[in-house]
Structure formats: C-alpha cells, structure tokens
Amino acid sequence: MKKAVYRIIKSIRTLLSELFHAKDSRLPYIITVIVSLVIVVGGINLFIELTDTLKTDTLARYDTAVTDYIISFRNPSLTTFFKFVTDIGDVTGYLIVLILFVLLSWRIIKSWKYVLQSVVVLVLATLSNMALKRFVDRARPGIEHLVTVKTLSYPSGHAMGAMAFFGFLIYLISKLRINRIFKYSLMVLVALLILSIGISRIYLGVHYPSDVAGGFIAGFIWVVFCILIFDVIQIFRRDPEV
C-alpha cells in the first residue's frame, strides 16, 4: 500500500514539475495541501446541501421516535453518568485528556508530534462545526434540556469533536507496539466513549439524533482528511524526491 502511495506521489510530482517547470520538491506537497483543502471546503458545501434535503417529515418522525426511546430510560443514576460523559466531550474534558497525552508523550513516546496533530484535528473540527451550525441554523429540540446550551443544534459539536479527537486517538493507538489484546481493548473503550458522548446529547435533550449522526459523519471526514495530510507530509519529509 505504501509503495503504491509513493508511486502515485512520484507521478504527481513529475506531472507538476512538467506543468510548472519547477524543480522545487515542496511544490507537490503545497499543491496537495491546497487541493485537499479545496476538497474539504467542497465536502462541507455538499454536506450542507445534503443536510437541507433532510428536513422532511420522515426525518422528524425518526428523530422523535429515537429521542422518545432514549429519554424513556431517564433516571437519576443515568442522568449523572451522561452529564459526566458529556463533560468529557467539552472543553474541560479535552484539556484533561490533552494534559494526560502530553505527560504520556513526554515520559514514554518521547515525541510531541502526535500531541500537535491531535490539537490540529480538534481545532479544525471545532471551527468547522461553528461554521456548519451557522449555515444550517437549526434550533435545539423543544423538549426539556438537562444541561444548559447556548449554540445552535446541527451538527452536534460534542459528537463531531468526539469523533474527530478521540477517533484520531484510536488511529494513534492502532500504531502503538503494545500487547494486541490491550491495544484492541483500549480502542474499543475509546470507541464506546465516542458513542456514549453522542448518546448523552440525545439523552440530555439538547440534540436530535440526526444532529449526532451529522456530527459523527463530519468528524469522521476530518479524521480521514487529517490522517491523509499527515501521512503525505511524512512521506515528503522522509524523501522529498518521491
């Protein structure tokens, strides 16, 4: 797979050099990043267009049915649990996780690269979520809110941030050379955390299920995009002449 990527990048570099009559090995990297950003912007616009088509009675019935089912389980213990989980997907939760990640990188991994990459993924997801909320302009559900919210509804910022940040952590965990059972168990636990954060937003009455689904999709797009860009950067740093 990596050899195939190298061949593709080398072909792109040759083509770009011929087109622009340039020998700068950084040119393909710069253009690749620009093209990737254009693709993301185009993807966001497509996401918004598709979201507009979801404003149907069918979706409203789906949202209501799923919400009613989830909130039917409300009880003091579950409410405490989901408030805790939703806090993990908020600013304070990310700061705590990042501090732990920094300590882990300092003492064990001996590299700050993955910390910086994780921050980049989270910041991109957060900024794009703010833009999407303003474009879509969907109000929060009219049911009782168990936590205070001040922003718009679609897509869920908690779901999008959780998928982007913790999803990227799953990718990093998959690269660790540790016991396989421990590695996969850790990946499953993080995946369950992502799912729990999404469910918590419905349970607490502050998001429609479609908000959470949209947040997960958008967050996953950022994970894939960032992994692609980071890998391309790594390839060009190792061998600028690929």
Score class of each variant (00 low, 15 high):
residue 9 I to Y: 12
residue 10 K to P: 00
residue 15 L to Q: 07
residue 22 A to W: 13
residue 24 D to F: 10
residue 25 S to V: 09
residue 25 S to L: 05
residue 29 Y to N: 02
residue 35 V to E: 06
residue 36 S to G: 13
residue 37 L to C: 12
residue 41 V to Y: 09
residue 43 G to Q: 06
residue 45 N to L: 13
residue 47 F to N: 07
residue 53 T to L: 15
residue 60 A to D: 02
residue 61 R to P: 00
residue 63 D to M: 03
residue 67 T to V: 11
residue 75 N to C: 07
residue 75 N to F: 03
residue 75 N to V: 02
residue 75 N to S: 10
residue 78 L to N: 05
residue 82 F to P: 07
residue 94 Y to G: 03
residue 95 L to V: 14
residue 95 L to D: 04
residue 108 I to Y: 11
residue 111 S to Y: 00
residue 114 Y to L: 10
residue 115 V to N: 11
residue 115 V to E: 13
residue 117 Q to H: 10
residue 119 V to Y: 04
residue 121 V to P: 00
residue 121 V to A: 05
residue 122 L to K: 07
residue 125 A to H: 01
residue 128 S to K: 02
residue 133 K to W: 08
residue 135 F to T: 01
residue 136 V to G: 01
residue 140 R to K: 09
residue 140 R to I: 03
residue 141 P to K: 07
residue 148 T to F: 05
residue 151 T to H: 05
residue 155 P to D: 03
residue 156 S to Q: 09
residue 162 A to D: 08
residue 169 L to I: 13
residue 171 Y to N: 07
residue 172 L to C: 03
residue 174 S to A: 11
residue 176 L to D: 00
residue 178 I to N: 04
residue 180 R to N: 05
residue 185 S to T: 14
residue 185 S to D: 10
residue 186 L to I: 11
residue 187 M to I: 14
residue 188 V to Y: 03
residue 193 L to I: 03
residue 194 I to V: 15
residue 194 I to L: 11
residue 195 L to T: 10
residue 198 G to T: 07
residue 198 G to F: 09
residue 206 V to W: 01
residue 213 A to G: 04
residue 214 G to D: 09
residue 215 G to K: 02
residue 220 F to T: 05
residue 220 F to E: 05
residue 221 I to L: 14
residue 225 F to S: 04
residue 231 D to H: 12
residue 233 I to K: 13
residue 236 F to E: 10
residue 240 P to T: 06
residue 241 E to N: 12
residue 241 E to H: 08
